[in-house]
């Protein structure tokens, strides 16, 4: 409901945003697609020309690709699982009448402000280092053999670091949603004879569904591209044990200087992200009807 003039203006007002995002989306994507069908290696500049599907065959046929794909899913799924369950529990706890709620909020949100390479460095050197990390000290205190986390459980270690960074985000959003649930509604449920568990399943959880959707959407956007944490800690290893798709493309394209194969990997990464995106947008579009 507006005048034709307003509609014209609104098109003009949206144009800059739409145009820059279109360019940002299309130009690199087209270039990536182009490179992915070329022989283009910085190490071997003599090899040029059309490569057909060779780069794709090389990337997808490599066993490291399947492993990276699985690792990506484990990473995203694992972190989502930890942050949503942990975040819900923590939000429920913080919603109780406790002393120092304001300070607690600030403390709990802090890890979100820590940049990924710092988070990774702190965990790597201060906590998970087999020699002088805090966890090693703890293990020794109980008379156990310290664990070399990044060698023995590389994916698990990366998941712990990333979950630590994102748990505050999930907790705060879920807490905000929880606090918007009216006391009356809870009391009504109590009057109807619902016990704590029933109240959680039938009143609280449905109320938080929208918030949980938002958490999943936003975290997935960021989790699909996890990079710095892996680069700083395991470097994708041992072998390819903690390489996700993002890091695989970096390894192939930048570290091995194979632009063609790296681009093919990039295209595959985009395709995967889009598959995930379609699912998410479907779910969120419904839940987001704001």
């Amino acid at each position: 409901m507006a005048t034709a003039q307003t509609r014209t203006l609104s098109r003009i007002m949206m144009a800059p945003a739409v145009i820059v995002l279109l360019i940002w989306m299309i130009v690199p994507l087209v270039m990536t697609l182009w490179f992915s069908f070329q022989n283009y290696s910085l190490i071997n500049p003599m090899m040029t020309g059309f490569a057909g599907w060779a780069n794709y065959v090389y990337v997808i046929g490599d066993p490291s690709f399947i492993q990276s794909l699985v690792n990506t899913l484990i990473l995203v799924g694992g972190v989502l699982l930890i942050t949503i369950i942990g975040g819900t529990l923590l939000a429920l706890l913080l919603d109780q009448p406790i002393w120092g709620q304001g300070i607690l909020r600030i403390i709990v949100i802090s890890p979100f402000f820590v940049m990924p390479p710092v988070a990774a460095l702190i965990w790597k050197n201060g906590f998970m280092h087999p020699g002088y990390g805090m966890l090693a000290h703890l293990w020794k205190f109980f008379g156990l053999q310290p664990i070399d986390w990044f060698n023995q459980y590389p994916m698990f270690s990366v998941i712990v670091i990333v979950a630590w960074q994102w748990l505050p985000f999930a907790t705060l959003i879920l807490l905000t949603a929880l606090q918007s649930l009216s006391e009356e509604q809870r009391e009504a449920a109590e009057m109807d004879g619902a016990n704590a568990i029933n109240r959680f399943y039938h009143i609280i959880l449905p109320h938080m569904a929208r918030a949980i959707t938002i958490v999943i959407l936003i975290q997935t956007i960021f989790l699909l591209g996890i990079f710095a944490e892996i680069r700083v800690t395991t470097g994708g290893g041992p072998g390819y044990a903690s390489t996700n798709i993002a890091f695989l493309v970096f390894r192939t394209g930048i570290l091995s200087n194979d632009i063609g194969a790296g681009s093919a990997g990039g295209v595959v990464a985009v395709v995967i992200a889009n598959i995930v995106a379609i699912f998410l947008m479907r779910a969120v579009g419904k839940n987001l009807d704001a």
Binding site: V27, P28, L29, M31, T32, F35, L224, G225, F227, I245, A246, F247, V249, F250, G253, I254, I259, G262, S263, G265, G266, V267, A269, V270, A273
Partner: peptide
């Protein structure tokens, strides 16, 4: 994903 367009 950023890596998808890093090279271009």
């Amino acid at each position: 994903p950023a890596v998808g367009v890093l090279i271009p």
